[in-house]
Design a binder for these strands. Structure first.
Lengths: 249, 249
DNA sequence: ATAAAAAAAGCAAAAAACTGCAAAATAAAT
DNA sequence: ATTTATTTTGCAGTTTTTTGCTTTTTTTAT
């Protein structure tokens, strides 16, 4: 078997499965592992793939991982935010949660729209101050270093004194039976307070989070008035949510 | 399973849920928790995520890096901040005002110093959350678009409920006879409330502002306990302030 | 203050990578 | 066709990396 041929096979395997182990290739090609190792080393030098300990991975795989400086699934989150923006109307009073999806919503708020926005997220607040016609009110409290949001009893008390038309919230996990759940108990307390302060609650969540759950419960799925994912509202993945009194966008 | 695969999975989980715990990952990947710990440590070193006790959190959440553009007289403001830092001590409860000079103070707070910091400035809060041993409490309220600080009656009310050892404030204008003055009436109201909430008040001001005044008065010069400028404390420009009961640094 | 959980450090077994080398295959030259 | 040079391949020994386990220290929660 020619070297060229072997390397072609290795590349095929890598591109097909995104990753490959040297031992597997050696077996498939029936050559020594040293030969495979050398082939992979060459292909790596030619930038055809990326050699890693124990195997090789495709370039497409690696390039998408290096670009993780930006937000995960940004395009999908923007798609969600675009739908959410359609719910906003002049003179509205809304709450915007923390998290990257809500951050995209904040970004996409039209400059001319006259809004009163409550938030407890420092990054969201920073974004909102750049909107000329948006009044920004920050819910104070102790700032969580992880999430960069106000948390704790003071925050919850402050939330109890407001009342907004719409709140746009994210969640860690969402399931049609178990509702919205979180990893963090304190976060749950805050989100509960947010929902209590809202006439209507809009959940923004990428579809990957559907049908997942964790330890602490924020609310049942019926506490949500509108759920927005990046999917088409008719998508089958959303079927489980149709039984509930829930608008899907 | 290749190490790269594992790390990619970890990144996916983290970016999807913003936060994961090591034990969950270990179970998902069916590897020992030590391996997960090491992977997360690596990813943290590569700035792909942030490792926290018990798990990891997504970077999208963390420090949107408050890169200050060009700050006027930055070196002098840093000099002031360096002096101010010497007043801080472990376990202290302080307030940090908005403005570029106070921002430099926030930047220079040592990482190991254990502090409780109140602030009403979004940029200062953003900076402070990066300090591991600093508890950050944001005074909520309506956010002023120019100053990016909380203002208004709610802010003032929130301020009335706290009491700090030191407050570090800036001012628009300062004069030995007329005291601290501002161009903006609302700002004055907030600063008054800050001073009232502080056992001791430290004024940070570059010397260019000395002997200037404006329309609305924040307080007399005796309300200030310590004044810090970039000048040597013995500098003649400070002579007019020596009559007062005022420490000059 | 105490107990529980997590992190860090050290260690050893296993897997993988690297090295040099010799045999085999290929190509080139006479 | 035969010899020679070059490249390729497999092998053995050594080094490095990875991984899980145990013990100790640190952190967190009660």
């Amino acid at each position: 078997m020619l070297k060229e041929e072997r390397q072609r096979t290795i590349l095929n395997e890598v591109e097909l499965h995104n990753r490959v182990q040297l031992t597997d290739i050696a077996e498939i090609l029936d050559v020594s592992i040293d030969t495979v190792r050398r082939d992979v080393k060459e292909l790596d030098a030619e930038n055809k793939l990326r050699k890693v300990h124990g195997g090789a991975i495709s370039l497409g795989f690696i390039s998408s991982s290096t670009r993780s400086t930006s937000v995960y699934a940004l395009d999908r989150k923007i798609a969600i935010a675009e739908k959410a923006v359609t719910l906003l109307k002049d003179g509205g009073v809304i709450f915007i949660d923390g998290g990257t999806t809500c951050m995209e919503l904040a970004r996409l708020i039209p400059a001319q729209l006259q809004l009163t926005c409550f938030t407890l997220s420092l990054p969201v607040a920073m974004e909102l101050v750049s909107k000329p016609n948006t009044t920004v009110i920050f819910i104070g409290g102790e700032i969580s270093k992880d999430a960069q949001i106000s948390m704790g009893s003071s925050t919850i008390h402050n939330l109890s004194e407001i009342r907004v038309d719409y709140s746009f919230i994210g969640t860690g996990y969402v399931d049609s039976r178990y509702g919205l759940t979180e990893f963090d108990w304190d976060i749950v307390q805050v989100k509960k307070a947010v929902i209590k302060s809202s006439k209507k609650t809009v959940l923004l969540s990428i579809s990957e989070k559907l049908n997942s759950q964790h330890r602490y419960k924020t609310c049942d799925i019926n506490a949500i008035n509108t759920m927005i994912t990046e999917l088409d509202p008719e998508n089958n993945l959303l079927n489980l949510f149709r039984n509930h009194d829930l608008r899907i966008l």
